[in-house]
Simulated scan of single mutants.
Amino acid sequence: MSPGKTGNVEAIANKLREYCVKGDFTDAQKAMYADDVVSTEPEEMKGFSKETKGKKAVADKMDKWLSSVDKVHRVDVSEPQIAGNAFSFVLQMDLTMKGQERMSMPEICVYTVKDGKVVSEQFFW
């Protein structure tokens, strides 16, 4: 892969990290995700599919998840690790979900980039 392409992925990774540090997940998706993005969770959860396809469906999934959050106390995001057209970081959230106790929610987030946009996201927790 040419240095320009790797640099582009690095810039995208750093920009997405900036959004996540601020907890601005919705605007990150609007600005950085491809129309045909695919989002994959480690398993199907109540009310959430294992795999979600398309920018609108992924945005709807985010809205649904955000509506289940009572309060975000803190968000920490590691520096991105970049390999070719992919990158990852550790996202650590301290939050309170509606009707639940405060919790720590760590996950590894892996993203793939194509033509300057995120085309896939996969979460491991």
Rank of each mutant, 00 (worst) to 15 (best):
G23H: 10
E41P: 08
Q100I: 00
E121M: 04
M1L: 11
K5C: 09
Q81F: 00
G47W: 09
Y111S: 01
K98F: 07
K64S: 15
A57G: 13
D27C: 02
S88N: 14
M103Q: 14
P80Y: 01
S39D: 13
G47N: 10
F48T: 05
E41M: 10
T96A: 12
R17V: 04
K15N: 09
F123M: 11
R102A: 14
T6V: 08
K46T: 15
S2P: 08
K46H: 07
Y33P: 08
K117P: 01
A28W: 00
I12L: 03
E41D: 12
E79I: 00
V72T: 13
K5F: 08
V21F: 10
K30V: 12
D115F: 13
K98R: 04
A59Y: 12
K64Y: 14
T26A: 11
S120M: 06
K61M: 14
Y33M: 12
K15I: 09
R17P: 11
E79M: 07
L66S: 12
F87W: 07
F89S: 01
E121G: 03
S104K: 04
Q81C: 05
A59R: 08
C20D: 06
F89M: 11
P3C: 06
V90C: 12
K56M: 10
Q100C: 06
S78K: 10
Y33E: 12
S104H: 04
K55T: 07
L66G: 07
E43L: 04
V77C: 07
K98T: 07
A34N: 11
V37R: 00
G54R: 01
E101C: 04
Y111D: 04
C20G: 05
D115G: 06
N14F: 02
H73Q: 05
K22I: 10
K55Q: 07
G23D: 02
E51N: 13
P80L: 04
V58T: 13
S120K: 12
K56P: 13
E79A: 10
V75K: 03
S49W: 11
A31F: 00
R17K: 12
N8A: 14
S2F: 06
K117I: 00
G84R: 09
E44L: 01
G99K: 09
P80M: 05
K46A: 15
K53G: 05
M32C: 05
V118M: 06
D63T: 14
K53Y: 15
R74S: 13
D115R: 07
S67G: 14
M45D: 15
G7T: 02
T26N: 09
I12N: 00
C109G: 01
Q122C: 05
D60M: 04
R74K: 15
V77E: 03
S68L: 12
V113S: 01
P106K: 02
F89Q: 07
S49G: 15
T26L: 10
N85Q: 12
W65A: 13
E51K: 14
T6K: 14
K30G: 09
D36C: 01
A86S: 13
D35H: 07
K98M: 03
F48P: 08
V21I: 15
